[in-house]
Simulated assay, not measured.
Amino acid sequence: MQKIINKLAVMSVKGTQQILHQKAISRWVYNHIYYSRWLTGGMIFFNTGLVPIDDEVFASGITDTQNPQAQTYHEAIKAYRRLTDWHDTHQVLEVGCGLGGGMHYLRRMLPSACLVAIDLSMSAIRRSRKLAPCFYAQADAHALPFQDASFDWILVVECLHKLNVEHFFLEAGRILKPEGVICIVDFRATTFQAISQRLQAACTAQGLHIAEMTDLTERVLQFAEQPQQHQHTLLNAIPWPFRWLGRELLVTPGSNRHSSYVQGQRCYYLCAVQKPAARLSNNDQLTA
């Protein structure tokens, strides 16, 4: 029996080492390839685009070629405005700043807000900081380095699928102010119903509730199937060996990602999660 236990212990250590090794490789790729200028060229957004595009996005003047990607962020802004009494002085956190286009757009649309962003990649933070000078921190979304009840709004664009959902909502709920909102825009290799149920369960476990859940898959397909010259421009800026990645990111017809959307094996969604108002203590109730 002791031999079996020892063997299992060795296997466990090796398994842990293998996982850590895989994470190290993933982080290297994330730092040195995903956010390298020779791969991403003039792109400032690394997320999926949506159409139709609101006039407010065009009027922002944020970009000539990536307005559909800016629209994705705009959908989150609209959801937040619908759910809250918006003030420009609100504290806003973006989880996963990427190339910085999102922070750049938020700064343009919410000029007086206090904007903070985190990312695992220092390469991403450097690029984002040049595009949108705000407050940045290299941090893991599973261990957010902020005090309780610090933010009014937490924005998570195409990042949640990389995280442990339950652990993230535990941390995000901790740093969210009462009546604050978490806006998630993301894809999942599953049905809209399945991801809705999973997110509902994860939120309920942390005392949060889903205020809005919207299926955006058709708008992604509309974007992908429109003949858009700027998509070809973006693809041509990517070195040939990596253009397959660009086609997947742009959901180009014929790509695996496009096929999975069409076949209903993948969905794109917006989820707005709200934290309940703070409960009054007995003394506060008596005073009121």
Results as ranks from 00 to 15, higher is better:
153 W>E: 09
72 T>L: 08
52 P>H: 04
143 A>R: 13
98 G>D: 12
90 H>F: 14
136 Y>C: 09
63 T>D: 07
133 P>D: 12
149 A>S: 14
81 R>M: 10
134 C>D: 12
70 A>V: 07
71 Q>E: 04
109 M>D: 02
84 T>Q: 01
114 C>L: 06
106 L>M: 09
92 V>K: 01
104 H>E: 02
99 L>T: 02
122 M>G: 08
144 L>K: 01
54 D>V: 04
55 D>C: 13
81 R>L: 12
108 R>A: 09
89 T>V: 10
113 A>L: 07
98 G>H: 08
72 T>M: 09
142 H>W: 02
149 A>H: 14
75 E>Q: 07
137 A>T: 15
137 A>V: 15
106 L>K: 06
119 D>Y: 10
67 N>G: 04
63 T>H: 02
91 Q>Y: 03
116 V>S: 03
140 D>H: 10
73 Y>N: 03
133 P>Y: 14
121 S>F: 10
123 S>M: 14
112 S>E: 12
115 L>K: 03
78 K>T: 13
104 H>S: 09
84 T>F: 00
90 H>K: 13
70 A>M: 04
56 E>N: 10
71 Q>H: 01
138 Q>F: 11
63 T>P: 05
81 R>C: 09
57 V>L: 00
101 G>D: 09
113 A>K: 05
144 L>M: 02
98 G>W: 06
67 N>T: 11
157 V>T: 10
144 L>I: 04
75 E>C: 06
63 T>R: 03
75 E>I: 04
79 A>E: 06
114 C>D: 02
90 H>I: 09
114 C>Y: 06
97 C>S: 15
76 A>C: 08
93 L>H: 04
68 P>V: 11
64 D>E: 12
64 D>Q: 15
75 E>N: 02
57 V>F: 00
134 C>M: 14
82 R>T: 08
145 P>K: 02
115 L>D: 03
59 A>P: 11
126 R>T: 15
72 T>H: 01
80 Y>G: 12
149 A>P: 05
123 S>V: 13
121 S>E: 06
100 G>C: 06
102 G>D: 08
122 M>Q: 09
125 I>V: 10
90 H>T: 08
103 M>F: 06
151 F>D: 14
84 T>H: 00
74 H>L: 05
125 I>R: 04
97 C>K: 10
106 L>N: 06
55 D>K: 14
60 S>A: 15
135 F>D: 14
152 D>A: 02
128 S>K: 05
93 L>A: 05
88 D>R: 05
156 V>F: 04
106 L>R: 09
108 R>Y: 01
103 M>Q: 06
107 R>P: 03
54 D>K: 04
101 G>A: 13
101 G>N: 10
70 A>K: 01
110 L>V: 14
77 I>Q: 02
154 I>V: 15
155 L>I: 14
111 P>M: 11
140 D>E: 12
142 H>D: 05
79 A>S: 15
152 D>H: 14
103 M>W: 01
68 P>F: 08
127 R>W: 12
110 L>A: 11
84 T>K: 00
143 A>Y: 07
154 I>F: 00
114 C>T: 06
106 L>T: 05
156 V>G: 07
89 T>P: 04
58 F>N: 15
151 F>E: 11
94 E>D: 13
154 I>D: 03
50 L>R: 00
96 G>W: 05
83 L>S: 01
